[in-house]
Design a protein around this nucleic acid. Sequence first.
DNA 1: AAAAGATTCAACCGCTCGCTT
DNA 2: TAAGCGAGCGGTTGAATCTTT
Length: 242
Amino acid sequence: MMQDEIRKGPWTEKEDLLLVNFVHLFGDRRWDFIAKVSGLNRTGKSCRLRWVNYLHPGLKRGKMTPQEERLVLELHAKWGNRWSRIARNLPGRTDNEIKNYWRTHTRKKAQERKRAMSPSLSSSNCSSSSNTTTVNSSPPPRTGETSFYDTGGLEQVALAGKNGEAVQGGGKGYSTDDFWKDIENTIEPLCDGFSEEGCKFSCPSLASPSWEYCSDTLWSFGDDEEGKIFLPYDEGTTFLTG
DNA sequence: AAAAGATTCAACCGCTCGCTT
DNA sequence: TAAGCGAGCGGTTGAATCTTT
């Protein structure tokens, strides 16, 4: 009857419980299957999202720590909007969470900038001549594609992405440089070399007990960066590897 | 104390990629 | 080898919550 209608919107506690049970039974891979057999009337996609973003046992909740914030900034500068990739370096944090954080952070930053620069500047000084003094909250319209999230990181990565290395300043000198300079002023480099491996939780500042707990017990990584997967530990429940 | 505005967070959508047949 | 299918990713939206006036 009405059973076939796909449910949308917020999840109820009951649904959560059901989903957790079925994930424990069948693992966190076969989402369509889980969606069907659980009787949740949700799409597999929806189930996966709920699990990944909310129900996953290794998730940290609450505010980002300053360390995490810095890491996000650093990694975003390096990889751009590769949220899942960034998330892999922040155990317990989801791509969605980081994405949201970034969005908030960027907006804040943009507004601070707007406030910081006087209205008069925008009319005359900022027109076209200067590339270093220009403080613009939005990315340059060079590609015509200006996602809300983009603060230059993506472009930097896009420019260099093929080579796998970030462009540092590259001589373009467009306004977002200022943005990152600004950030650099308030944060110190987390990792010197900043190789992909280098940032894999070797940062001493992150070695709080809780982080160790996360990385030692709740999470484990694969060998290479790309193949890194989360393996939540759940008391003898090895449901994720199957 | 109430209303308006701003911010945060959870969830959905569409696209892409990789695996299977 | 190509087609189909499912999972994952990034972008976007809207509701809930918090803050300010």
